[in-house]
Write a protein that binds this DNA or RNA. Structure first.
Lengths: 245, 245
DNA sequence: GCGATGTTTCGGCCGGGACCGAAGCGTCGC
DNA sequence: GCGACGCTTCGGTCCCGGCCGAAACATCGC
């Protein structure tokens, strides 16, 4: 008795959809558009066109394809069409692709002008990433305010008091005493975890509120202000060198 | 004074490499190959060719492209060429793409033959995923053995004793008392977290050792054995229905 | 050495898709 | 209503890349 195996590709039905999603990301222009949308804000089709360096009609085609693939949603407002990522899961997928791209090729990686700023400090959906984000996570772990391990993170009791003092609202008091309300998010540029989850979002909100960081105009880069520099040093023990190597 | 902005796409230098990586995944055949490699084991080029339903020479081209993109590595052993994922980060990226693909299109998603088995129970790099994996995580959380929140997970004291009794070795005793040694991994088919990290890997090892689960021959699907069925019910309170809807 | 087997390279075919110019449609401001 | 503006559709060009057959190369068993 011979077992007959169908010769054609039937092993993974979902592979097709994965391929569709990946192919929808797998174009330089579309990838740039998606990365510009990673902060969760919506952009108009025209903004994305100039960002990609293409004409409006070509951008329209790209956007249609990304809508089709379920990556972005578009809604009309007047004569503009606002486009945003359909779900934080899309941003997470992009981050993980960036992580793969960062480890993969020691080949020519032409670090562009704003690339340095992105590596320094940027938003990752709703929280802080980049060198500053990783340094902050390290400092909080060093001081026993959070515990990082195995891609997960956890707020300690002493950390909870500290964050409360710092003015971040962590929502409802923990029902279970040891609830990890923050998520360790792998940083694509640093290859080390930074803090995400509710805590990461609340911290970034607070930093923006305090004026320690100001968002960049057209990308996800964040600029550290002078009060931010001293604030991070005093409150968190994070010294930010002026220019990294 | 007018600020001149370069019209071409310079906003994100890393966008190109992200696009390269995504494009390397964005082909049905390559995606199927990568998903077959997600268990971390290596396959020969020929195996991947028949899996993709293509000829050897076409598969060779696909593999060359994936090597170029830094997704897989290949090493020769005799007249075979073994291919494996270059890093667990690649598997993580594929999982996150699957998550996006799962939420995105309510369109035609032709669930293939082995797709049902994959949804039921499969390996996710080195731990258990699928309906069974999610149910296990739920049961452990319900019984207070782990705490799940915000994409992170944490073993409780009572859980630590339980896992020790169950025969899984969690490695060195925790230096910090509240170390989260497991990771909550978002399940693409269930859209709910399952247990990864060291704990997830140790549990899967133990299940295989006990013969509760047996690995599928050619894909990542896992088959639940009769002792497994009763074992999951008795030890974890997880009842596995025979055929899900 | 010689054939069998696994894998790659070469050459050619062909379709998809990225791009733009021109034109069409809807919306805003006057 | 009319032009300006934002966006999409249509038509056409062009090139990338997926596919295979044939052949070359490497390795194993004899």
């Amino acid at each position: 008795m011979i077992e007959v195996v169908a010769p054609t590709t039937v092993a993974f039905a979902s592979a097709n959809t994965v391929a569709e999603v990946a192919a929808a990301i797998g174009d330089p222009v579309r990838a740039a558009m998606l990365m510009a949308l990673m902060d969760g804000r919506a952009r108009t089709a025209g903004e994305l066109a100039v960002l990609g360096g293409i004409t409006a009609q070509t951008a329209s085609g790209h956007l249609a394809r990304m809508v089709e693939a379920g990556l972005v949603v578009a809604e009309k407002q007047g004569r503009h069409r606002y486009v945003r990522l359909v779900d934080p899961a899309v941003a997470a997928a992009l981050e993980s692709l960036m992580a793969v791209a960062a480890i993969a090729p020691p080949r020519h990686r032409p670090t562009g002008p704003s690339d340095a700023a992105l590596r320094e400090a940027r938003t990752c959906w709703d929280h802080l990433a980049g060198r500053l984000g990783v340094a902050l996570a390290d400092a909080l772990a060093r001081d026993g305010r959070v515990v990082l391990a195995d891609g997960a993170a956890l707020v300690t009791d002493v950390g909870e008091a500290f964050f409360c003092d710092f003015g971040v609202d962590l929502g409802r008091p923990p029902a279970a005493s040891r609830r990890p309300l923050c998520r360790a998010c792998l940083d694509w540029s640093e290859r080390r975890p930074h803090l995400g989850g509710r805590l990461g979002a609340a911290l970034l909100d607070r930093f923006l509120e305090l004026g320690w960081l100001v968002p960049g105009p057209r990308d996800r880069a964040l600029r550290l202000t002078p009060p931010g520099r001293s604030g991070f040093a005093e409150s968190f023990g994070v010294e930010v060198s002026r220019a990294p190597t």
